[in-house]
Design a binder for these strands. Structure first.
Lengths: 146, 146
DNA sequence: TATTGTTATACTCTATAACTATA
DNA sequence: TATAGTTATAGAGTATAACAATA
């Protein structure tokens, strides 16, 4: 059953990656946008840690999103070594589109289940995830950026 | 919930990879051993396709397992272009160890659930996997070999 | 001296496309 | 000519470690 979980997880992640490719986003990029929506203003090192990538890789990764006008680097006046990363209005707009894609993906993935079963599955998975010590909303599978 | 599935799947896959590293196996290598146990004698191209890797990458991949004496390349007398791949007795032995690891991994992953809930979760996941068209026992997440 | 962000670099992984041998 | 296996190779992705600015 753990194997099924891994297999199905890879499948769901792959299909989601295909969908957001239509928004010109990779899973890791979508992850950063979600992270910034939840807790804005954090440093690059913190964010890199959450996404499971070394700081050196985070720099060009954030560069691309900044060039596209989706995120913004603001200097922290109290400690000028740090940047505080924020979503731009364009970033918030794309986040909305991302949520629509996620909803469609959710429905497509759980087609086989009734609403009650869907709910039941979610409850069981949340229990397992909590016991396994997973942080909600962040997963370590962003090793690859492409 | 699809996100939870992907997150938990990546977690389970990662923990499993850690466990089988103790047997000096990668997930892709374990996948090939399981594949050969189920349907022996297939060609390298077929197996490469199932594992989601190009034939050129399959060659050094199989070389390592052959050097370790876990698998065997047998020439097909009817068509001498093909190899027929088989597990050696050592390969079967390691497969047994692999199954023990998988059992321990299963228990560790589903600690949070009662036996009834465990069964229930498995049933729901199987339904979703079938509807999504997944082949039992094979998953496309073997992109990485290391 | 320690930490943030950055850059340089060496290394691994990968896919594509040639090559050979068999058919 | 087509296909299985193999090899060569160029490109992408990666982590490590050095660096500059600030604390």
């Amino acid at each position: 059953m753990a194997f099924l979980l891994a297999q199905l997880g890879a499948h769901a992640a792959g299909r989601f990656a295909e969908r957001i490719a239509g928004l010109d986003l990779t899973p890791a990029q979508a992850g950063l946008l979600r992270l910034l929506a939840r807790t804005p203003g954090r440093s690059q090192r913190e964010l890199a840690g959450d996404l499971g990538m070394p700081p050196s890789r985070f720099v060009p990764f954030a560069d691309k999103l900044e060039e596209r006008g989706l995120i913004e680097r603001r200097r922290n006046p109290d400690d000028r070594r740090l940047y505080a990363l924020h979503l731009t209005p364009e970033g918030f707009g794309l986040l909305g589109a991302l949520r629509e894609v996620a909803t469609a993906h959710e429905e497509q993935t759980c087609q086989a289940l009734s609403p009650e079963e869907h709910e039941q599955l979610g409850a069981l998975l949340r229990r397992v995830a909590e016991q396994q010590g997973l942080t909600p909303g962040v997963h370590p599978g962003y090793r690859s950026v492409r």
